[in-house]
Design a protein around this nucleic acid. Structure first.
Lengths: 353, 353
DNA sequence: AGCCTTTTCGCAATCGTTTGCACGTGGTAG
DNA sequence: CTACCACGTGCAAACGATTGCGAAAAGGCT
């Protein structure tokens, strides 16, 4: 890229009008010369002069004006529950990087799980002419934000959640494959009594992971009754405490435990240690997400690594396609997680009593 | 189930014009009635009707048009090196939350440390009419991005860096106080030979922390020679490895170590363990930042907790003031970090041989 | 050389909002 | 009773870019 230092006196942004005067043509000509799509309508000589002038005067287009006229700003909105949750930054990075390449900009909003607020946000974004939306907020039935988007005909791509609604694309992690890999790993280590800390069943991940767990257990012909699975109220460490206590109160009839999420696993670790149960000697533990630093805790957590960044990138790509394609065709892609074996899982020492 | 994307009969957003027709007044009246600043110019009865109509028709103002007209978009840009670095999300959350309350929106851009790219970003943001900028990118001399802002007269607030440039506000962590607290803590534990893994000296934090370390050592009348401090090339774990190795190669003439950053501390931990030195028995270690999960690694890291969120909030507040105040007065605030004592520091077992 | 097609460019409307100005009321002071 | 003021509204011009349409210039063909 050829980079030119802008003119010294850049007080006011130079407009297309000034370019026109400078070159001696009409503004419409300048506009067309500047736009690669319409450039072919203009004589090569003029184009050259316009481009030169633009470079010289340090012209940078006023995207607001363009947006107002065309009704579309090259902006997309990202809706997440909470930026501080370490799973989201990689998503966002993935989205932003691919968006950047296409000349789009992202606006990020945190909903903190407030559904009404989410709908508000969608409206505000609409006011800012967002061309589309990427939502990574948890699933609820009849989600008002999604509804709002459908009503207003603004394209949406969902991350880590799927919704019955027709015509909505989604990029998902293959939770089923992940859970199966975890169960398989534990079985190979000799475990037969495996418990599950399920995530909130109102969320897509909570549901699918639980369901996959049940199916995997059946597929491996392992014993499974209700005692072995407990449901968390949220994906947090305190929720993990609670669930772990519930699980233990039923008697530790398991030698391994699959948590729906690393945070739950961390909570489990706390309670397990309180109860003088050692990981992985007494119980093997596998998490989900591979959050930063879980490889360095004691013991290092065996977990499923999700392709966060790539998921974000895919979501952005799909959205971009939907924005440009004449006939937007919704689709959903699924990325495989990778089982990362670390210290929190080990051989089953004793068989089920 | 047949899936059909509904025809492009997108229900268009209601405009101020429609409101005017609905109420039976002129658009300018509606505009004034809607704006709290100018509302007093309009009769109370009309205001009431306009507001009611706006509510009824679900009017949401087109911020692009307003921005185009007024030249300001109630948008501010945030410039950070990398969103995936866990120290930044809390900053951003703090910024966004206080910005939200003021009706502003943030656009986040990652520079990945590329200075030229940063300047590009500033231009793009300017094109989007950002009213101001908050930058948390590291310091370099003659920073082109900052220069660009000054040239274009767009207000900037710096986070975690100060710059000689006049009229630039900044919100900083009190690195000096932090380092002093760390040294004090170690001294109380009986340490006298304390080493320092300094951060990149091109960064503000790297410089001030190193300087504070030197001064603190002198203030406590502790021995200090060049062997005791090594400089890292970056704030990363690999950089930590490198520096730690350098430090050890000079002989472990220290019983405690202060890292300029948690990541460096983590790197140190690795090399220390390779060298069969135990923390904190053989060497006490204190980090800086209190990143998530460093309380759960082995050993739990003693570190300095920075008020990330609050720093972001402050930065946003200052920027907002500068945007509205008639005579923007630059200022810099400093927030105190808190020493969080955990398992990585302990009493000095043996005195210096 | 005349006519027709293509290329190249100008004209003017438009997007939704804000805002300086003018205009009309009613009321009060002179 | 006139002149003046404040108040409440309407009028119309911006803001900077895009784009359908038409016109002029250029080129091709018989």
């Amino acid at each position: 890229m050829v980079e030119k230092t802008p003119p010294a006196s850049a007080r006011k942004a130079t407009t297309i009008k000034e370019l026109a005067e400078h070159v001696g043509v009409h503004v419409s000509t300048v506009s067309r010369a500047l736009n690669p799509e319409t450039r072919n309508l203009i004589g090569p000589a003029v184009v050259k002069k316009v481009l030169a002038a633009a470079d010289e005067l340090g012209y940078v287009p006023n995207s607001m004006a363009a947006a107002l006229r065309t009704g579309q700003s090259r902006t997309v909105g990202i809706l997440i529950p909470d930026l501080m949750n370490p799973v989201f930054p990689p998503f966002i990075r993935g989205i932003q990087d691919t968006l950047d390449d296409a000349g789009y900009t992202a606006i990020i909003a945190n909903s903190d799980g407030d559904k009404d607020y989410e709908r508000d946000i969608v409206q505000k974004m609409k006011a800012r002419f967002v061309a589309g939306l990427i939502m990574a907020t948890p699933l609820y039935r009849g989600d008002p934000a999604v509804r709002e988007c459908i009503d207003r005909h603004i394209p949406v791509v969902l991350i880590n959640r799927a919704i019955g609604e027709a015509g909505i694309s989604a990029v998902l992690n293959d939770d089923r494959a992940g859970i199966i890999a975890a169960v398989d790993h534990l079985v190979r280590l000799g475990h037969r009594r495996i418990a599950h800390m399920a995530g909130p069943q109102a969320t897509y991940t909570g549901m699918t992971r639980h369901q996959a767990f049940v199916e995997a257990m059946q597929a491996y012909d392992l014993p499974l009754d209700d005692d072995q699975v407990a449901f968390a109220a949220g994906y947090t460490i305190p929720a993990g405490h609670e669930v772990m206590r519930a699980l233990l109160s039923r008697g530790p009839a398991f030698t391994a435990l699959i948590a729906a999420n690393d945070q739950l696993a961390l909570g489990a670790l706390d309670v397990l240690s309180e109860a003088r149960l050692r990981v992985p000697r007494d119980v093997s533990l596998v998490g989900f997400n591979d959050m930063p630093l879980v490889d360095r805790i004691d013991p290092p957590l065996t977990t499923l690594r999700i392709q966060h960044y790539e998921m974000g990138a895919q979501a952005a790509r799909i959205l971009l396609e939907e924005l440009t394609a004449p006939k937007p065709e919704s689709r959903t892609v699924m990325l495989r997680p990778e089982l990362v074996v670390r210290g929190s899982t080990g051989p089953a020492l004793r068989a089920r009593p």
